[in-house]
Amino acid sequence: VVSQCEHCRQEKLLHEKLRFSGVEKSFCSEGCVLLYKQDF
């Protein structure tokens, strides 16, 4: 499944979907998940 990563904003293969404040977010890698959590 290809989707837009919430952190790097590129269309890539889906690595993980997480829920932040009740909204589902898509990420392409574990690195982007960690960076997004730092900024959140």
Rank of each mutant, 00 (worst) to 15 (best):
Cys28Val: 01
Arg19Ser: 14
Arg19His: 02
Glu11Ile: 03
Cys5Ser: 00
Gly31Gln: 14
Glu6Trp: 06
Glu30Phe: 04
Cys32Gly: 04
Ser29Thr: 03
Val1Ala: 07
Ser29Val: 03
Gln38Ala: 10
Ser26Leu: 11
Leu34Ala: 14
Val2Arg: 08
Ser3Val: 13
Val1Lys: 14
Leu35Trp: 03
Phe20Trp: 09
Leu13Lys: 12
Gly22Trp: 01
Leu35Cys: 14
Leu18Gln: 08
Val33Ser: 12
Leu13Val: 09
Cys28Trp: 00
Leu18Val: 15
His15Ser: 13
Glu30Ile: 15
Glu24Gly: 04
Gly22Val: 01
Phe40Arg: 14
Cys8Gln: 00
Val33Thr: 07
Gly22Met: 06
Asp39Glu: 10
Asp39Thr: 09
Leu18Pro: 13
Ser21Glu: 13
Leu35Val: 03
Asp39Arg: 14
Ser3Lys: 07
Leu14Ile: 12
Glu11Cys: 12
Gln4Ala: 15
Ser29Ala: 10
Lys25Tyr: 08
Gln4Val: 15
Phe27Leu: 00
Tyr36Ser: 04
Ser3Gly: 15
Ser29Gly: 02
Ser21Cys: 05
Leu34Ile: 05
Glu30Pro: 11
Glu16Gln: 08
Ser29Arg: 04
Leu34Val: 07
Val2Asn: 14
Val23Ala: 08
Lys17Asp: 11
Cys5Gly: 02
Tyr36Gly: 06
Ser29Trp: 02
Leu18Ala: 11
Val1Thr: 06
Glu16Arg: 10
Ser29Ile: 08
Asp39Leu: 10
His7Leu: 04
Glu24Cys: 08
Glu16Ser: 06
Lys17Ala: 03
Cys5Lys: 02
Gln4Asp: 12
Phe20Met: 11
Lys37Met: 00
Cys32Pro: 01
Ser21Leu: 06
Gly31Met: 15
Gly31Ile: 13
Leu34Tyr: 04
Glu11Gly: 04
Gln38Cys: 00
Cys32Asn: 00
Leu34Ser: 09
Gln10Tyr: 06
Leu14Glu: 00
Tyr36Gln: 07
Asp39Ser: 12
Val33His: 08
Arg19Asp: 13
Lys17Gln: 08
Lys25Glu: 00
Lys25Val: 05
His7Val: 11
Glu24His: 05
Phe20Arg: 05
Leu35Thr: 09
Phe20Cys: 03
Cys28Ser: 02
Leu34Asn: 14
Ser21Phe: 03
Val2Leu: 05
Arg19Phe: 14
Gln38His: 15
Arg9Asp: 03
Lys12Trp: 01
Leu14Asp: 02
His15Ile: 12
Arg19Trp: 13
Cys28Glu: 00
Val2Ala: 09
Lys12Val: 04
Val23Gln: 03
Val2Glu: 09
Leu34His: 10
Phe20Lys: 08
Gly31Val: 09
Arg9Cys: 09
Tyr36Trp: 03
Glu11Leu: 08
Phe40Leu: 14
Leu18Ser: 06
Ser29Phe: 14
Gln38Leu: 14
Phe40Met: 13
Leu13Asn: 08
Leu13Gly: 04
His15Ala: 06
Glu30Val: 09
Val23Leu: 09
Lys37Phe: 04
Gly22Leu: 00
Lys17Asn: 06
Cys8Val: 01
Glu11Lys: 06
Lys17Val: 07
Ser26Glu: 04
Cys8Arg: 03
Cys32Gln: 05
Lys25Gln: 01
His7Arg: 08
Val23Pro: 07
His15Thr: 14
Glu24Val: 05
Cys5Gln: 00
Tyr36Glu: 08
Leu35Lys: 13
Glu6Ile: 09
Lys17Gly: 03
Lys25Ser: 00
Leu35His: 06
Ser3Leu: 02
Leu35Ala: 15
Val23Met: 15
Glu6Pro: 15
Ser26Pro: 01
Cys8Gly: 01
Val23Asn: 13
Ser21Asp: 15
Ser3Pro: 03
Lys12Arg: 05
Leu13Ser: 08
Phe27Pro: 04
Lys25Leu: 04
Glu16Leu: 11
Arg19Met: 13
Cys32Glu: 02
Gln38Ser: 11
Lys17Trp: 01
Val33Ile: 00
Glu30Tyr: 08
Cys28Arg: 00
Cys5Pro: 00
Val1Leu: 07
Ser21Gln: 08
Glu6Arg: 01
Ser26Gln: 02
Phe40Trp: 08
Cys8Lys: 12
Lys37Pro: 01
Lys25Thr: 03
His15Gly: 08
Cys8Ala: 01
Arg9Pro: 02
Glu30Gly: 08
Lys37Ile: 02
Phe40Cys: 11
Val33Pro: 02
Arg9Trp: 05
Val23Ser: 06
Leu35Pro: 06
Gly22Ala: 01
Ser26Thr: 02
Tyr36Phe: 15
Lys17Phe: 08
Glu11Trp: 14
Val1Gly: 10
Lys25Arg: 08
Phe20Tyr: 04
Glu11Thr: 08
Gln10Pro: 04
Gln10Ser: 05
Gln10Asp: 06
Leu18Glu: 11
Ser29Asp: 01
Lys12Glu: 01
Lys37Asp: 09
Arg9Ser: 13
Ser21Arg: 08
Arg19Cys: 14
Val33Ala: 12
Lys12Thr: 12
Asp39Trp: 05
Val1Glu: 11
Gly31Trp: 07
Val2Pro: 12
Leu13Met: 07
Leu13Glu: 10
Val2Gly: 06
Val1Arg: 10
Val33Met: 14
Cys5Phe: 05
Cys8His: 00
Glu11Arg: 07
Cys28Ala: 00
Leu34Lys: 15
Glu30Trp: 00
Val1Asp: 07
Phe40Ala: 13
Lys17Arg: 11
Ser21Met: 10
Leu34Gln: 12
Lys37Val: 07
Ser26Asp: 06
Cys32Ala: 03
Gly22Thr: 10
Phe20Val: 12
Cys8Tyr: 11
Cys28Thr: 01
His15Arg: 10
Cys5Glu: 00
Arg9Thr: 05
Cys5Trp: 00
Leu14Ala: 04
Gln38Pro: 02
Ser21Pro: 04
His7Gln: 11
Cys28Pro: 02
Ser29Glu: 05
Gly31His: 09
Gln38Met: 05
Lys12His: 01
Phe20Thr: 00
Arg19Gln: 11
Ser26Trp: 10
Ser3Thr: 13
Phe40Thr: 15
Lys37Thr: 08
Arg9Met: 04
Cys32Leu: 00
Lys25Ala: 06
Ser21Trp: 04
Val1Tyr: 12
His7Cys: 13
Asp39Ala: 11
Lys12Gln: 12
Phe20Gln: 09
Val33Leu: 13
His15Gln: 03
Phe27Val: 03
Lys37Ala: 01
Cys32Met: 03
Cys8Glu: 00
Gln4Phe: 15
Glu16Asp: 04
His15Glu: 04
Phe40Pro: 14
His15Phe: 11
Lys37Leu: 06
Ser29Cys: 11
Asp39Met: 10
Leu34Pro: 07
Tyr36Asn: 15
Lys17Ile: 13
Gln38Arg: 11
Arg9Asn: 06
His15Met: 11
Arg19Lys: 14
Lys37Gly: 04
Cys5Asp: 02
Gln10Ala: 02
Cys8Ser: 03
Glu6Lys: 12
Lys37Glu: 04
Leu18Cys: 07
Val2Met: 14
Tyr36Leu: 02
Ser3Gln: 05
Glu30Ala: 08
Val2Lys: 14
Leu14Lys: 02
Ser26Tyr: 14
Gln38Glu: 10
Ser29Gln: 02
Leu14Arg: 02
His15Asn: 10
Lys25Trp: 00
Leu18Thr: 05
Glu6Val: 12
Glu6Thr: 12
Gly22Lys: 01
